[in-house]
């Protein structure tokens, strides 16, 4: 599908990147269309990361002021992590030192608390596993291919971490942190590149499995 293509006609439910015009469903992006029982869907092949509430993202602290941290979340908008979300309600700029928690340049895992069209997205680190990322190799994948990297119910990412012995953390914004043995990390990074290039392949899972299997056998 390319922008302007008619994906389906009639009456269906429809997802993102689709516009309904009369009884036609029009693709707004280059992507693969799915017409099924749960409606019309378009999986885009390319595009920027647009924040969505509840997304888990990985970002880099680029600035801090009296009230919180500004985080680059690989999007056209910067994320803002308010200090009161970190220190609690009793936070006051005079008693708390923000740089004791996160410094400029730190990588953090966070959740998008809220995002509206009129304001920059607000982040939160409340919950298990959020906060500063202490170690790991950082990789990037285009945000539209994140679902491919994760796979159906995490199938792809689980297989990848099992076969390489690495701990892989994927942000919805396309930032990936990999921890583990050096050879494993190299393999993961190569696989991510492969997924990036062949995201359109129908048998991606088997291809990756073959690649990983072959790589272990060859060593």
């Amino acid at each position: 599908m390319i922008p302007g293509d008619v994906i389906a006609r009639g009456n269906h439910q429809y997802g993102g990147y689709i516009e309904k015009r009369g009884d036609e469903y029009i693709a707004l992006r280059v992507g693969l269309a799915e017409v099924g029982r749960d409606g019309v869907k378009l999986n885009p092949m390319t595009g920027p990361y647009m924040p969505r509430a509840e997304d888990e993202v990985i970002g880099k602290v680029v600035d801090l002021n009296g009230f919180g941290w500004v985080v680059d979340i690989n999007s056209c908008f910067d994320g803002f992590l308010p200090a009161s979300f970190v220190f609690g309600r009793e936070f006051s700029p005079s008693t708390h030192d923000l740089s004791s928690k996160f410094k400029v340049g730190d990588i953090i895992g966070a959740r998008i608390e809220s995002y509206e069209r009129s304001r920059d997205p607000q982040l939160s680190i409340r919950g298990q596993g959020y906060g500063k990322v202490e170690s790991g190799e950082i990789a990037k994948i285009s945000p539209t291919k994140v679902p491919r990297l994760i796979g159906r119910r995490g199938a792809m990412i689980n297989m990848l971490s099992e076969k390489t012995g690495c701990d892989i953390r994927v942000g919805q914004n396309g930032v990936v942190v990999v921890n583990g043995p050096p050879e494993g990390i190299v393999k993961v990074l190569k696989t991510i590149k492969m997924i990036e290039e062949e995201a359109h392949a129908a048998d991606l899972m088997t291809k990756i499995e073959e690649y990983l299997g072959g790589a272990t056998g060859g060593e």
Partner: peptide, 11 residues
């Protein structure tokens, strides 16, 4: 524009 993944009504 299509390559950049900007939402477009048509080419």
């Amino acid at each position: 524009l299509a390559d950049a993944g900007i939402n477009m009504r048509d080419m």
